[in-house]
Amino acid sequence: MSSHAHVADPDAPVVYEQYEDISQQQETYIVGMWSFLVTEVMMFGALFLIYSLYRWKFGHEFFIYHEHLSWQWAGLNTFNLLLSSFWMAKAVQAAQLGDHKKQIRLLWQVFACGLVFLVIKSIEWIPKFQIHLVPNNSFVWPPIDEPGLGGSPEHARIFYSLYFSMTGLHGLHVVIGMICMAVLATLVKRKSKVITDYIPTEMVGLYWHFVDLVWIFLYPLFYLIPK
């Protein structure tokens, strides 16, 4: 990775007039993206806080409720997201090194991972709608297919409210990430003037890694509750 064209680089980034140099400009972009991610941390943070309160209050019951979730499917999704994060980091690296062909291929690979994530999520979600585990007025606990599960229906409802809101908000982020990924890959492919350096890829990458970060915590909290 040490061989680069040093002369007349068409990928040479543009330094806008308000910045001292390219490094200050890029730092500013990254700080801006992180400030946005801080607001995301706080948004998910509120949900994690609510989860912590109820887990603290109904910990032993939460174990019963989580038995109905599939840790295997979610585990597959965890690996899927880790792989996508890895490819995303590689895409940023390719963008930095100016290897646009590799960058575009990796971006579409990440997009495909997002798609796989949503498919697995639907495999998990759709049966829950069918057996009335969605916390609306038709909520039924114990579930129709596993009538042996105990615990109070009110508390099960709290668990499934948290489950649907947290994985749902996360799923929404996956969808937004995929849209960003597709737009970015298309712009890079068309050699758009909007993309003057690796920074747009870095921004989308930071967002995608954040989506992975949230899932890193959601997985043990919902699917791997110890007895």
């Binding site: 990775m1 140099d21 490094s23 890029q26 940023v92 690296q93 930095q96 690796y198």
Partner: peptide
Amino acid sequence: HTEHAHHVTS
């Protein structure tokens, strides 16, 4: 990389 202001992770 000296021509880039940023760090390229290996």
